[in-house]
Design a protein around this nucleic acid. Structure first.
Lengths: 252, 252
DNA sequence: AATAGCTAGTGTACACCTTACACTAATTCC
DNA sequence: GGAATTAGTGTAAGGTGTACACTAGCTATT
């Protein structure tokens, strides 16, 4: 099937970093390896890419096989190809990450895994292969992502309180946020729908419940954070050339 | 050497998107393919990754072989692995991009290339394989990069004027920038050293020449854009807990 | 030597965004 | 009914982004 010199061929895989959020903690799904190498060690769920399978499709398949999940946020992060990353030979792996609502899915360990389990990000120690490094790259990407667009709803149950949302952000960013400022910012985006319901069974003032407005979010992304809004508030009459000016931010 | 099932093996390559800047135009280095497939078509310079070679090393080698360049900005962007991206079989490719000063180097076409030539980004038409898509992904990354940190000096000669720098940014961002605001921003970062020299041989008021302060830049990156600076200007006395607070931007 | 042509270089005002910060409201538990 | 707990709210100050127009200094031309 493949005309290329065997010399240039190598095995390649996808590894999935699956983030979830539970009990106020950011978690990652790990499997306990059932075979050598690194037998009994924790590792990221991953598998070979089939020869007739696109890369993204492979990542989706692996996720699906592990969690039964489809249509989730899934993004390629980076490819790891150090010569000695796999003790049995050359294996290049493409890292993907995804965000899922833990409560929704039963994780069924697959054949490669003795068991699959959610681990708190902060408590993950050594992992098989270079998976710790892969995890860190993906965590870094998640941090960036969560700052640059209001993702993260992906990790919460359908109904949530603002405090829960804030805790999620704090867990991802590993920092504390100011309650009032956080709420102001979140609410100003109009991406939340106030459900006019409150929590039940809590031993304190119950919080309002919200859900995520997916439609507005799609719109939001489609508009690409248009620069022109700022202008048009000021001079609504002049709708002529509209020179779009770029903004140089230089923040991380 | 490799114990893995042949079934899961495939050829893999790196492709380099090498950006340069010349005559006010952002350019990309392309080679004209000397062999099938896509013979005589323009393509990104790329080659197989050797089995005993790390991925990043392969990208560096390809760049070096083409341009004689070492120690340049080189960053992995994304891996392209559609099943049919290569007509002769499955080939996964990892895309890297780099920034170089065109004037400094003589590009010597290698054996795979009939010739290598700089092309204006805006005029690149079809490319071999999925290289147009790869180019676009890298261009997008460059745009992002240039907004998020003051890279871009990499593309200019050692001495440059602020107007040249501005033109570079405009070429990358495909937009116009305000002269005064641009200068204010750039100068406020203290990353430029005023050489106290001026242009010669121009038929108008000569501009001051600057060079890039690499040391300050390293420092800048090392400090990680510290959040604390803002605080310390205000209350310089209280140097206690310094809770670092994150900033959520939600811009693109 | 005057002038035209060209690009360099500079400051300010306004809108908007970010940040810091503390008290009252609503509920349960005892 | 009071203690405990978390929800919920506004404002002032500083900083950043943006729009905008004129003078300065050099060459080339006459």
């Amino acid at each position: 099937m493949n005309e290329f010199n065997e010399y240039f061929k190598s095995a390649f895989t996808v590894d999935n970093v699956i983030f979830g959020f539970d009990e106020g903690d950011l978690k990652v799904l790990l499997i306990n390896r059932g075979e050598e190498p690194y037998k009994s060690k924790w590792a990221l769920p991953g598998y070979f890419v089939y020869p007739n399978e696109d890369l993204d499709a492979a990542a989706k398949r692996v996720l699906d096989e592990l969690t039964g999940l489809r249509n989730v946020y899934l993004e390629q992060v980076r490819t790891f190809g150090a010569v000695n990353r796999h003790p049995f030979g050359r294996v290049i792996t493409v890292a993907y990450f995804s965000l899922i609502k833990i409560s929704h899915y039963n994780i069924q360990p697959s054949s490669i895994a003795k068991k699959a389990k959610w681990h708190s990000i902060s408590k993950v120690a050594d992992l098989a292969f270079d998976h710790k490094e892969i995890l860190e790259a993906c965590f870094h990407r998640l941090k960036w992502l969560v700052r640059s667009r209001p993702v993260g709803f992906e990790l919460l149950p359908p109904k949530f309180t603002l405090t829960e949302l804030q805790h999620l952000y704090e867990a991802i960013l590993e920092t504390e946020l100011d309650k009032r400022n956080f709420r102001k910012k979140i609410l100003s985006m109009n991406l939340l729908i106030d459900l006019d319901e409150t929590q039940e069974g809590v031993a304190h003032r119950p919080a309002r419940l919200y859900k995520f407005d997916r439609e507005k979010y799609e719109q939001f992304l489609a508009e690409g954070f248009s620069f022109e809004l700022k202008e048009s508030k000021k001079k609504e009459k002049k709708s002529r050339s509209k020179k779009v000016r770029a903004n140089i931010a230089w923040k991380d």
